[in-house]
Design a protein around this nucleic acid. Structure first.
Lengths: 198, 198
DNA sequence: GCACTATTTTAATCTAGATTAGAATTTTTT
DNA sequence: AAAAAATTCTAATCTAGATTAAAATAGTGC
Protein backbone atom coordinates (compact mmCIF):
# COMPACT_ATOMS: atom_id res chain seq x y z
CA UNK A 1 0.00 0.00 0.00
CA UNK A 2 2.99 2.21 0.52
CA UNK A 3 3.54 2.85 -3.17
CA UNK A 4 1.37 5.80 -3.98
CA UNK A 5 2.48 5.93 -7.61
CA UNK A 6 -0.46 4.77 -9.70
CA UNK A 7 0.19 2.04 -12.19
CA UNK A 8 -0.32 4.24 -15.23
CA UNK A 9 2.21 3.94 -18.02
CA UNK A 10 3.27 7.52 -17.32
CA UNK A 11 3.90 6.91 -13.65
CA UNK A 12 5.74 3.68 -14.31
CA UNK A 13 8.00 5.30 -16.86
CA UNK A 14 8.58 8.24 -14.58
CA UNK A 15 9.63 5.91 -11.80
CA UNK A 16 12.00 4.09 -14.12
CA UNK A 17 13.45 7.46 -14.91
CA UNK A 18 13.95 8.35 -11.26
CA UNK A 19 15.80 5.10 -10.71
CA UNK A 20 17.99 5.69 -13.74
CA UNK A 21 18.73 9.19 -12.52
CA UNK A 22 19.51 7.93 -9.03
CA UNK A 23 22.01 5.52 -10.52
CA UNK A 24 23.76 8.30 -12.42
CA UNK A 25 23.69 10.77 -9.57
CA UNK A 26 25.02 8.27 -7.06
CA UNK A 27 27.91 7.57 -9.35
CA UNK A 28 28.94 10.94 -10.75
CA UNK A 29 26.90 13.46 -8.81
CA UNK A 30 24.09 15.73 -9.85
CA UNK A 31 25.96 18.18 -12.05
CA UNK A 32 28.31 15.47 -13.18
CA UNK A 33 25.54 13.48 -14.82
CA UNK A 34 24.09 14.82 -18.05
CA UNK A 35 20.48 14.29 -18.98
CA UNK A 36 21.87 12.36 -21.92
CA UNK A 37 23.46 9.91 -19.47
CA UNK A 38 20.15 9.36 -17.73
CA UNK A 39 18.21 9.11 -20.97
CA UNK A 40 20.70 6.64 -22.40
CA UNK A 41 19.90 4.15 -19.65
CA UNK A 42 16.26 4.32 -20.65
CA UNK A 43 16.97 4.16 -24.37
CA UNK A 44 15.62 7.67 -24.80
CA UNK A 45 16.75 11.05 -25.95
CA UNK A 46 17.62 13.70 -23.41
CA UNK A 47 14.79 15.89 -24.65
CA UNK A 48 12.29 13.15 -23.87
CA UNK A 49 12.88 13.54 -20.17
CA UNK A 50 11.27 16.95 -20.29
CA UNK A 51 7.98 15.24 -20.85
CA UNK A 52 8.22 13.97 -17.28
CA UNK A 53 9.93 16.80 -15.45
CA UNK A 54 10.11 20.55 -15.84
CA UNK A 55 13.90 20.60 -15.66
CA UNK A 56 16.97 18.85 -14.30
CA UNK A 57 16.70 20.41 -10.88
CA UNK A 58 13.23 18.97 -10.51
CA UNK A 59 14.61 15.58 -11.47
CA UNK A 60 17.02 15.58 -8.54
CA UNK A 61 14.36 17.00 -6.29
CA UNK A 62 12.04 14.13 -7.16
CA UNK A 63 14.84 11.62 -6.67
CA UNK A 64 15.39 12.98 -3.18
CA UNK A 65 11.69 13.02 -2.36
CA UNK A 66 11.51 9.43 -3.51
CA UNK A 67 14.50 8.51 -1.38
CA UNK A 68 12.85 10.13 1.61
CA UNK A 69 9.61 8.28 0.93
CA UNK A 70 11.41 4.97 0.75
CA UNK A 71 13.11 5.64 4.06
CA UNK A 72 9.88 6.71 5.66
CA UNK A 73 8.12 3.63 4.36
CA UNK A 74 10.76 1.33 5.83
CA UNK A 75 10.65 3.13 9.12
CA UNK A 76 6.89 3.09 9.28
CA UNK A 77 6.77 -0.60 8.70
CA UNK A 78 9.46 -1.21 11.30
CA UNK A 79 7.67 0.88 13.89
CA UNK A 80 4.41 -0.92 13.39
CA UNK A 81 6.00 -4.37 13.53
CA UNK A 82 8.81 -3.85 16.03
CA UNK A 83 8.58 -5.58 19.41
CA UNK A 84 10.78 -3.06 21.23
CA UNK A 85 13.24 -0.27 20.42
CA UNK A 86 16.08 -2.56 19.52
CA UNK A 87 13.93 -4.78 17.36
CA UNK A 88 12.48 -1.77 15.60
CA UNK A 89 15.90 -0.41 14.74
CA UNK A 90 16.94 -3.77 13.31
CA UNK A 91 13.79 -4.04 11.25
CA UNK A 92 14.10 -0.52 9.95
CA UNK A 93 17.65 -1.11 8.77
CA UNK A 94 16.69 -4.37 7.18
CA UNK A 95 13.65 -3.00 5.39
CA UNK A 96 15.42 0.11 4.18
CA UNK A 97 18.40 -1.81 2.86
CA UNK A 98 16.18 -4.40 1.23
CA UNK A 99 14.56 -1.68 -0.82
CA UNK A 100 17.87 -0.05 -1.72
CA UNK A 101 19.43 -3.25 -3.02
CA UNK A 102 16.20 -4.67 -4.43
CA UNK A 103 14.38 -3.96 -7.67
CA UNK A 104 12.98 -0.72 -6.33
CA UNK A 105 16.54 0.55 -6.21
CA UNK A 106 18.79 2.28 -6.70
CA UNK A 107 17.72 4.98 -4.31
CA UNK A 108 19.39 8.37 -4.60
CA UNK A 109 21.89 9.45 -1.99
CA UNK A 110 20.80 12.86 -0.74
CA UNK A 111 24.27 14.23 -1.05
CA UNK A 112 23.72 17.48 -2.92
CA UNK A 113 20.79 19.07 -1.18
CA UNK A 114 22.50 22.49 -1.29
CA UNK A 115 22.29 22.40 -5.08
CA UNK A 116 18.51 22.40 -5.01
CA UNK A 117 16.61 25.61 -5.40
CA UNK A 118 15.51 27.12 -2.04
CA UNK A 119 11.93 25.83 -1.91
CA UNK A 120 12.97 22.32 -2.78
CA UNK A 121 16.03 22.48 -0.60
CA UNK A 122 13.99 23.45 2.42
CA UNK A 123 11.43 20.76 1.81
CA UNK A 124 13.99 18.00 1.39
CA UNK A 125 15.97 19.21 4.39
CA UNK A 126 12.83 19.05 6.43
CA UNK A 127 12.08 15.50 5.29
CA UNK A 128 15.61 14.56 6.13
CA UNK A 129 15.38 16.11 9.58
CA UNK A 130 12.12 14.33 10.26
CA UNK A 131 13.67 11.04 9.34
CA UNK A 132 16.61 11.57 11.69
CA UNK A 133 14.32 12.74 14.44
CA UNK A 134 12.12 9.73 14.06
CA UNK A 135 15.08 7.42 14.16
CA UNK A 136 16.31 9.08 17.33
CA UNK A 137 12.85 8.60 18.84
CA UNK A 138 13.12 4.90 18.23
CA UNK A 139 16.51 4.85 19.93
CA UNK A 140 15.08 6.71 22.90
CA UNK A 141 12.18 4.29 23.12
CA UNK A 142 14.69 1.47 23.12
CA UNK A 143 16.62 3.05 25.94
CA UNK A 144 13.43 3.36 27.94
CA UNK A 145 12.23 -0.17 27.34
CA UNK A 146 15.68 -1.43 28.27
CA UNK A 147 16.54 -2.97 24.91
CA UNK A 148 19.15 -0.31 24.16
CA UNK A 149 21.90 0.98 26.43
CA UNK A 150 22.01 4.63 27.40
CA UNK A 151 23.78 6.57 24.66
CA UNK A 152 23.89 9.85 22.79
CA UNK A 153 21.03 9.26 20.38
CA UNK A 154 22.06 12.10 18.11
CA UNK A 155 25.56 10.73 17.60
CA UNK A 156 24.45 7.13 17.45
CA UNK A 157 21.83 8.06 14.90
CA UNK A 158 24.35 9.90 12.75
CA UNK A 159 26.75 6.99 12.92
CA UNK A 160 24.21 4.41 11.84
CA UNK A 161 22.57 6.55 9.17
CA UNK A 162 25.94 7.44 7.69
CA UNK A 163 26.65 3.78 7.18
CA UNK A 164 23.32 3.34 5.41
CA UNK A 165 23.67 6.42 3.27
CA UNK A 166 27.05 5.33 2.03
CA UNK A 167 25.94 1.90 0.80
CA UNK A 168 25.02 3.02 -2.72
CA UNK A 169 28.57 4.28 -3.15
CA UNK A 170 30.06 0.82 -3.09
CA UNK A 171 27.10 -1.46 -3.85
CA UNK A 172 26.64 -1.70 -7.57
CA UNK A 173 23.87 -4.17 -8.16
CA UNK A 174 25.32 -7.60 -7.44
CA UNK A 175 22.25 -9.32 -5.93
CA UNK A 176 24.34 -11.83 -3.99
CA UNK A 177 26.14 -8.96 -2.30
CA UNK A 178 22.80 -7.22 -1.88
CA UNK A 179 21.43 -10.05 0.21
CA UNK A 180 24.54 -10.12 2.29
CA UNK A 181 24.26 -6.43 3.06
CA UNK A 182 20.60 -6.75 3.97
CA UNK A 183 21.28 -9.55 6.43
CA UNK A 184 24.65 -8.45 7.81
CA UNK A 185 24.30 -4.71 8.21
CA UNK A 186 21.37 -4.70 10.63
CA UNK A 187 23.31 -7.06 12.85
CA UNK A 188 26.64 -5.27 12.60
CA UNK A 189 25.15 -1.84 13.15
CA UNK A 190 23.15 -2.83 16.21
CA UNK A 191 25.48 -5.23 17.94
CA UNK A 192 26.77 -2.39 20.06
CA UNK A 193 23.39 -1.07 21.12
CA UNK A 194 22.09 -3.46 23.85
CA UNK A 195 23.08 -2.86 27.46
CA UNK A 196 25.91 -5.01 28.78
CA UNK A 197 24.29 -8.26 29.83
CA UNK A 198 27.00 -8.53 32.47
CA UNK B 1 56.59 14.11 10.17
CA UNK B 2 53.67 12.89 8.14
CA UNK B 3 53.12 16.20 6.34
CA UNK B 4 55.32 16.02 3.30
CA UNK B 5 54.25 19.42 1.95
CA UNK B 6 57.19 21.78 2.34
CA UNK B 7 56.54 25.03 4.09
CA UNK B 8 57.04 27.21 1.03
CA UNK B 9 54.48 29.93 0.38
CA UNK B 10 53.43 28.10 -2.74
CA UNK B 11 52.82 24.82 -0.96
CA UNK B 12 50.97 26.50 1.88
CA UNK B 13 48.70 28.36 -0.49
CA UNK B 14 48.14 25.23 -2.51
CA UNK B 15 47.09 23.37 0.60
CA UNK B 16 44.70 26.14 1.58
CA UNK B 17 43.26 25.78 -1.87
CA UNK B 18 42.76 22.04 -1.51
CA UNK B 19 40.91 22.57 1.75
CA UNK B 20 38.72 25.24 0.19
CA UNK B 21 37.98 22.94 -2.72
CA UNK B 22 37.20 20.08 -0.37
CA UNK B 23 34.69 22.24 1.41
CA UNK B 24 32.93 23.15 -1.83
CA UNK B 25 33.03 19.64 -3.23
CA UNK B 26 31.69 18.09 -0.04
CA UNK B 27 28.80 20.48 -0.14
CA UNK B 28 27.79 20.70 -3.77
CA UNK B 29 29.81 18.04 -5.51
CA UNK B 30 32.63 18.27 -8.00
CA UNK B 31 30.76 19.52 -11.04
CA UNK B 32 28.39 21.51 -8.87
CA UNK B 33 31.16 23.69 -7.53
CA UNK B 34 32.60 26.30 -9.88
CA UNK B 35 36.21 27.36 -9.68
CA UNK B 36 34.84 30.76 -8.82
CA UNK B 37 33.24 29.26 -5.70
CA UNK B 38 36.55 27.80 -4.61
CA UNK B 39 38.49 30.95 -5.46
CA UNK B 40 36.00 33.11 -3.56
CA UNK B 41 36.80 31.33 -0.31
CA UNK B 42 40.46 32.23 -0.81
CA UNK B 43 39.73 35.78 -1.90
CA UNK B 44 41.06 35.06 -5.35
CA UNK B 45 39.91 35.02 -8.93
CA UNK B 46 39.05 31.74 -10.58
CA UNK B 47 41.87 32.18 -13.06
CA UNK B 48 44.39 32.36 -10.23
CA UNK B 49 43.81 28.73 -9.37
CA UNK B 50 45.43 27.73 -12.64
CA UNK B 51 48.71 28.87 -11.19
CA UNK B 52 48.48 25.91 -8.83
CA UNK B 53 46.78 23.22 -10.87
CA UNK B 54 46.61 22.35 -14.54
CA UNK B 55 42.80 22.16 -14.53
CA UNK B 56 39.75 21.45 -12.43
CA UNK B 57 40.02 17.72 -12.76
CA UNK B 58 43.49 17.83 -11.29
CA UNK B 59 42.11 19.85 -8.40
CA UNK B 60 39.69 17.09 -7.42
CA UNK B 61 42.34 14.49 -8.03
CA UNK B 62 44.66 16.26 -5.61
CA UNK B 63 41.85 16.61 -3.08
CA UNK B 64 41.30 12.88 -3.22
CA UNK B 65 44.99 12.08 -2.98
CA UNK B 66 45.19 14.36 0.03
CA UNK B 67 42.19 12.64 1.59
CA UNK B 68 43.82 9.28 1.05
CA UNK B 69 47.05 10.51 2.58
CA UNK B 70 45.25 11.77 5.64
CA UNK B 71 43.54 8.44 6.09
CA UNK B 72 46.77 6.55 5.61
CA UNK B 73 48.52 8.78 8.10
CA UNK B 74 45.87 8.17 10.76
CA UNK B 75 45.96 4.46 10.14
CA UNK B 76 49.74 4.31 10.22
CA UNK B 77 49.85 6.06 13.53
CA UNK B 78 47.14 3.81 14.96
CA UNK B 79 48.92 0.67 13.83
CA UNK B 80 52.20 1.73 15.38
CA UNK B 81 50.59 2.73 18.67
CA UNK B 82 47.78 0.20 18.99
CA UNK B 83 47.97 -2.40 21.73
CA UNK B 84 45.79 -4.93 19.95
CA UNK B 85 43.32 -5.09 17.05
CA UNK B 86 40.48 -3.49 18.92
CA UNK B 87 42.64 -0.72 20.31
CA UNK B 88 44.11 -0.04 16.89
CA UNK B 89 40.68 0.32 15.31
CA UNK B 90 39.63 2.78 18.01
CA UNK B 91 42.80 4.80 17.61
CA UNK B 92 42.52 4.89 13.85
CA UNK B 93 38.95 6.20 14.02
CA UNK B 94 39.91 8.76 16.60
CA UNK B 95 42.98 10.02 14.70
CA UNK B 96 41.21 10.12 11.38
CA UNK B 97 38.23 12.01 12.73
CA UNK B 98 40.47 14.42 14.65
CA UNK B 99 42.10 15.45 11.41
CA UNK B 100 38.78 15.75 9.57
CA UNK B 101 37.24 18.05 12.16
CA UNK B 102 40.46 19.84 13.05
CA UNK B 103 42.31 22.66 11.31
CA UNK B 104 43.69 20.34 8.67
CA UNK B 105 40.13 19.81 7.51
CA UNK B 106 37.91 19.71 5.74
CA UNK B 107 38.97 16.56 3.96
CA UNK B 108 37.30 15.74 0.66
CA UNK B 109 34.80 12.92 0.50
CA UNK B 110 35.88 10.62 -2.30
CA UNK B 111 32.42 10.46 -3.72
CA UNK B 112 32.98 11.16 -7.39
CA UNK B 113 35.90 8.99 -8.31
CA UNK B 114 34.20 7.98 -11.58
CA UNK B 115 34.43 11.59 -12.74
CA UNK B 116 38.21 11.51 -12.72
CA UNK B 117 40.14 10.80 -15.88
CA UNK B 118 41.20 7.15 -16.20
CA UNK B 119 44.78 7.44 -14.94
CA UNK B 120 43.75 9.42 -11.90
CA UNK B 121 40.68 7.31 -11.32
CA UNK B 122 42.71 4.13 -11.26
CA UNK B 123 45.26 5.59 -8.92
CA UNK B 124 42.69 6.90 -6.45
CA UNK B 125 40.71 3.68 -6.61
CA UNK B 126 43.85 1.79 -5.79
CA UNK B 127 44.57 4.04 -2.80
CA UNK B 128 41.03 3.55 -1.65
CA UNK B 129 41.27 -0.21 -1.99
CA UNK B 130 44.52 -0.28 -0.08
CA UNK B 131 42.96 1.66 2.73
CA UNK B 132 40.02 -0.71 2.98
CA UNK B 133 42.30 -3.71 2.79
CA UNK B 134 44.51 -2.37 5.53
CA UNK B 135 41.52 -1.72 7.73
CA UNK B 136 40.30 -5.24 7.20
CA UNK B 137 43.73 -6.52 8.14
CA UNK B 138 43.46 -4.73 11.45
CA UNK B 139 40.07 -6.31 12.05
CA UNK B 140 41.49 -9.72 11.26
CA UNK B 141 44.37 -9.14 13.63
CA UNK B 142 41.87 -8.21 16.30
CA UNK B 143 39.93 -11.40 15.72
CA UNK B 144 43.12 -13.40 16.09
CA UNK B 145 44.29 -11.67 19.22
CA UNK B 146 40.84 -12.12 20.71
CA UNK B 147 40.00 -8.45 21.08
CA UNK B 148 37.39 -8.61 18.31
CA UNK B 149 34.63 -11.18 17.81
CA UNK B 150 34.54 -13.29 14.69
CA UNK B 151 32.80 -11.33 11.94
CA UNK B 152 32.70 -10.65 8.23
CA UNK B 153 35.57 -8.18 8.01
CA UNK B 154 34.55 -6.95 4.59
CA UNK B 155 31.05 -6.01 5.70
CA UNK B 156 32.15 -4.70 9.06
CA UNK B 157 34.79 -2.60 7.34
CA UNK B 158 32.28 -1.18 4.89
CA UNK B 159 29.87 -0.36 7.69
CA UNK B 160 32.41 1.50 9.79
CA UNK B 161 34.08 3.30 6.90
CA UNK B 162 30.70 4.42 5.56
CA UNK B 163 29.99 6.11 8.85
CA UNK B 164 33.32 7.92 8.71
CA UNK B 165 33.00 8.93 5.09
CA UNK B 166 29.62 10.46 5.70
CA UNK B 167 30.71 12.75 8.53
CA UNK B 168 31.64 15.72 6.31
CA UNK B 169 28.11 15.71 4.98
CA UNK B 170 26.61 16.80 8.27
CA UNK B 171 29.56 18.24 10.17
CA UNK B 172 30.03 21.85 9.18
CA UNK B 173 32.80 23.22 11.33
CA UNK B 174 31.35 23.64 14.81
CA UNK B 175 34.40 22.78 16.93
CA UNK B 176 32.29 21.79 19.93
CA UNK B 177 30.50 19.25 17.77
CA UNK B 178 33.85 18.26 16.29
CA UNK B 179 35.20 17.22 19.65
CA UNK B 180 32.08 15.29 20.38
CA UNK B 181 32.35 13.35 17.15
CA UNK B 182 36.00 12.59 17.76
CA UNK B 183 35.32 11.18 21.20
CA UNK B 184 31.93 9.53 20.63
CA UNK B 185 32.29 7.92 17.22
CA UNK B 186 35.22 5.63 18.00
CA UNK B 187 33.26 4.30 20.96
CA UNK B 188 29.94 3.96 19.17
CA UNK B 189 31.43 2.31 16.11
CA UNK B 190 33.42 -0.25 18.06
CA UNK B 191 31.07 -1.10 20.89
CA UNK B 192 29.78 -4.05 18.89
CA UNK B 193 33.16 -5.48 18.01
CA UNK B 194 34.43 -7.27 21.16
CA UNK B 195 33.42 -10.88 21.76
CA UNK B 196 30.58 -11.43 24.21
CA UNK B 197 32.20 -11.34 27.63
CA UNK B 198 29.47 -13.74 28.75
C1' DG C 1 65.58 51.65 -6.00
C1' DC C 2 66.60 47.99 -9.54
C1' DA C 3 66.12 43.67 -11.77
C1' DC C 4 64.04 39.47 -11.43
C1' DT C 5 60.57 36.20 -10.07
C1' DA C 6 56.23 34.89 -8.18
C1' DT C 7 51.44 35.63 -8.01
C1' DT C 8 47.08 37.44 -9.46
C1' DT C 9 44.01 39.85 -12.59
C1' DT C 10 41.55 41.25 -16.83
C1' DA C 11 39.41 40.17 -20.80
C1' DA C 12 38.61 36.96 -24.30
C1' DT C 13 37.47 32.41 -26.17
C1' DC C 14 35.30 27.88 -26.35
C1' DT C 15 32.39 24.08 -25.26
C1' DA C 16 29.36 20.90 -23.04
C1' DG C 17 25.10 20.40 -21.86
C1' DA C 18 20.40 22.37 -20.46
C1' DT C 19 16.43 23.91 -22.57
C1' DT C 20 12.74 24.75 -26.19
C1' DA C 21 9.62 24.50 -30.26
C1' DG C 22 7.66 21.94 -33.40
C1' DA C 23 7.53 17.73 -36.15
C1' DA C 24 7.19 12.77 -36.08
C1' DT C 25 5.89 8.62 -34.16
C1' DT C 26 3.54 5.46 -31.26
C1' DT C 27 -0.41 4.15 -28.42
C1' DT C 28 -5.11 4.27 -27.24
C1' DT C 29 -9.89 5.03 -28.07
C1' DT C 30 -13.92 4.63 -30.59
C1' DA D 1 -8.71 2.02 -39.32
C1' DA D 2 -9.39 6.97 -38.40
C1' DA D 3 -9.03 10.36 -34.88
C1' DA D 4 -7.25 11.83 -30.64
C1' DA D 5 -3.99 11.61 -27.12
C1' DA D 6 0.38 10.34 -25.45
C1' DT D 7 5.18 9.90 -26.10
C1' DT D 8 9.56 10.70 -28.31
C1' DC D 9 12.62 12.88 -31.62
C1' DT D 10 15.12 16.51 -34.48
C1' DA D 11 17.26 20.59 -34.75
C1' DA D 12 18.05 24.91 -32.87
C1' DT D 13 19.21 28.12 -29.14
C1' DC D 14 21.44 29.79 -25.01
C1' DT D 15 24.35 30.03 -21.05
C1' DA D 16 27.37 29.00 -17.31
C1' DG D 17 31.63 28.05 -16.44
C1' DA D 18 36.30 26.07 -17.81
C1' DT D 19 40.26 27.54 -19.97
C1' DT D 20 43.93 30.71 -21.98
C1' DA D 21 47.01 34.65 -23.06
C1' DA D 22 48.84 38.68 -21.86
C1' DA D 23 49.06 42.50 -18.72
C1' DA D 24 49.44 44.08 -13.98
C1' DT D 25 50.82 43.78 -9.36
C1' DA D 26 53.36 42.15 -5.35
C1' DG D 27 57.49 40.24 -3.38
C1' DT D 28 62.46 39.31 -2.88
C1' DG D 29 67.37 39.61 -3.08
C1' DC D 30 70.88 42.82 -4.07
Amino acid sequence: MAQKAEETRFELQKDRMLRAAARCFNEKGYSGSSLKDVAAILGLTDAALYYYVRNKEELVYLCYVRAAAVGREAMGRAVSEGLNGMDTVRRYLRYHIEIMVGDRGPVAIMSEIPSLKPVHRDEVLELSRQHSARFEEILKAGIEDGSIALCDVRMTGNAIMGSINWIPKWYHGDPEMGNMIATEFPVILTRGLPPETA
